[in-house]
Design a protein around this nucleic acid. Structure first.
Lengths: 110, 110
DNA sequence: TTGACAGGTGACCAAAAGGTCACTTAATGT
DNA sequence: ACATTAAGTGACCTTTTGGTCACCTGTCAA
C-alpha cells in the first residue's frame, strides 16, 4: 500500500484523530492512558483503541517506544506537513498573503 | 456529519486525491475533463468519477460553478490549511518543515 | 512464585464505502 | 425540430473498515 494512502486512511477516522489530539496535547502517553482518553468520550473496548493506535503507527503518524511492559506514543508531524505542501503551492500562499495584507490595510483606514 | 469528518473522509480515497491533484495543476476543469483525467489512469466509469466529485464538493474541498450544461470545479485550499494547523504548532512547524526538506533532499540523491 | 498489570493475536460480525447500471434531465448546435 | 453533449438519480452489488470477543504473552512487585 502506498505510503500516503496509509496516512490519509489513518486520518479518516474520528477516534484516530481524537488520539492524535490527545498526543498533541500531551506527547508520549502509554496505550492504557490513551485508552482512558477515548473511553471517557465514546464507548469502545481497549481492543478497538489498540487497533486504531496500530494503524496510526503503520501510517507513521505516531512513533512508539517500548518501555518495560508499557508502550509510549509520540506524535510525528512530518506527514501532516506533507499534506499541506501537496495542495498549497507558492502561488496560493502568495495570494493568501496578499489578501491578508489588503485586509490589514483596509482595517487601518479611518 | 461533522464538517472536518467530511474533509478527512473525502481525502481518504486515492481517486479523489487524484482529482485534487488535477485541479491543483489546472483549476476550473469541467466534470468531463476530470473524467478524462481519471479514466486515463484507472478503470472507472463516469458515474464513479461524478460520485467522487460530489463528495469533494460536499466536503468543501472543491467549489463548483455551473456554466450552461457544464460544471467547472475549483480547488479550495482552506480546509487543507486547517488540517495543518490542527497538529502542527508554531514550534513544531519549523522542525517538521526542516525534516521534510531533508527527507526530500535525501530521496533525490543518486 | 503467584497474581495482577500492560499489551498482543486471530477469528468473526455488522456497517459503511466504492463502483456500476438503466434511465432521466437539461442545454447546444445544425 | 432533432440529435448530441453534459450531467443527475436511485437501486443494486461487492469490498473494506470498525469493532468485539476468547484466549495468549511478557513484565513487575509482594
Amino acid at each position: 500500500m502506498a505510503d500516503d494512502d496509509l496516512v490519509f486512511k489513518a486520518l479518516a477516522d474520528p477516534t484516530r484523530r481524537m488520539l492524535l489530539d490527545a498526543l498533541f496535547e500531551r506527547d508520549g502517553q502509554t496505550q492504557s492512558e490513551l485508552e482512558g482518553v477515548v473511553t471517557a468520550r465514546v464507548e469502545m473496548t481497549r481492543f478497538g483503541v489498540a487497533k486504531h493506535l496500530r494503524l496510526l503507527e503503520e501510517a507513521g503518524l505516531v512513533v512508539i517506544r517500548k518501555e518495560g511492559r508499557s508502550k509510549h506514543h509520540f506524535l510525528n508531524a512530518v506527514p501532516i506537513r506533507a499534506i499541506h505542501d501537496r495542495w498549497i503551492g507558492k502561488y496560493t500562499a502568495a495570494r493568501a498573503a496578499a489578501l491578508l495584507d489588503l485586509k490589514r490595510a483596509l482595517e487601518e483606514e479611518p
